[in-house]
Amino acid sequence: MSIQDLEKIFQDKIDNEIKIEPKDWMPEAYRKTNIRQISQHAHSEVVGMLPEGNWISRAPSLKRKAILIAKVQDEAGHGLYLYSSAETLGSSRDEMIAHLLSGKAKYSSIFNYPTLTWADMGAVGWLVDGAAILNQVMLCRTSYGPYARAMVRICKEESFHQRQGFESLLVLSRGTAEQKAMCQDAINRWWWPSLMMFGPKDSESTNSDQSMKWKIKRKTNDELRQQFVDMIAEQIKVLGMKLPDADLKWNEERKHYDFGEINWDEFWQVVKGNGPCNKQRLAARNKAHDDGEWVREAAIAYAEKKKQPKTQAA
């Protein structure tokens, strides 16, 4: 069969909402795009444990500590689901980890911001996970089967993350003047970076939109961002807090919230490695990896030893 025929069969499947599975023929660019996207997503889950890990030992109560540990454990699991699905495309786990550790592979820039106060745990859950969920809900319908299945599993678990974050902020918003101020401060610092999570504006692209045609992605950056703003602008009323955007206003004509301009210079700086915590995050991952080396080796040595037939003593 010619490559054109194969490509046509492939695109027909996509158009008819038939999922692509690991052993199916697929264009090389489709494979590569998926590997890049899924592994970046996996790295984001793994690095995403670091800003929250910072607060496990400082959580204000045993309940909050248990919740935070459960959430961080979930992120590790999410990373694993995603690495596994990228592996089905022929990328090895070692290779992906190596790319993360060397700084070649990217992860979501949001995790290069510091978590300065306890209220940040609430803001991260509500805003950062909230933004991630919108993307992930869309990805439940992505065209690559293993990625879509990993997303379904992740979405089921992720909603606890967002709810616990909001609830944690709700408690602060009903607390002392100091607690309220802490809540507002965290929202102020996390709002704009959360909006940046959706990536550059659609209008900045001149390329044809291959990811949409292949249904790897099913909504544009701006669509998802607008959905997020509309959701948060309503929810913040319950908290009695304010979003740090003077231009935020309901637009009756569009039936959406208008919002202010994002600082794209900051966005690109963080993407390029110059965010507040880029170096710290990578150093922490590298240290964890190096410190775990002997454990990985000991485990495999033990497994090999057990495999050897037992020699009978005379």
Binding site: T33, R36, Q37, Q40, H41, S44, S102, G103, K104, A105, K106, S108, A131, N135, M197, F198, G199, P200, D202, E204, S205, T206, N207, D209, S211, K217, N221, L224, V271, K272, G273, N274, N278, L282
Partner: peptide
Amino acid sequence: FFRKFYYGDIPEDNAGGN
């Protein structure tokens, strides 16, 4: 950059770090 990319899909040629 005139390249379209999405959240969770940052082009590698734009990467920081080494």
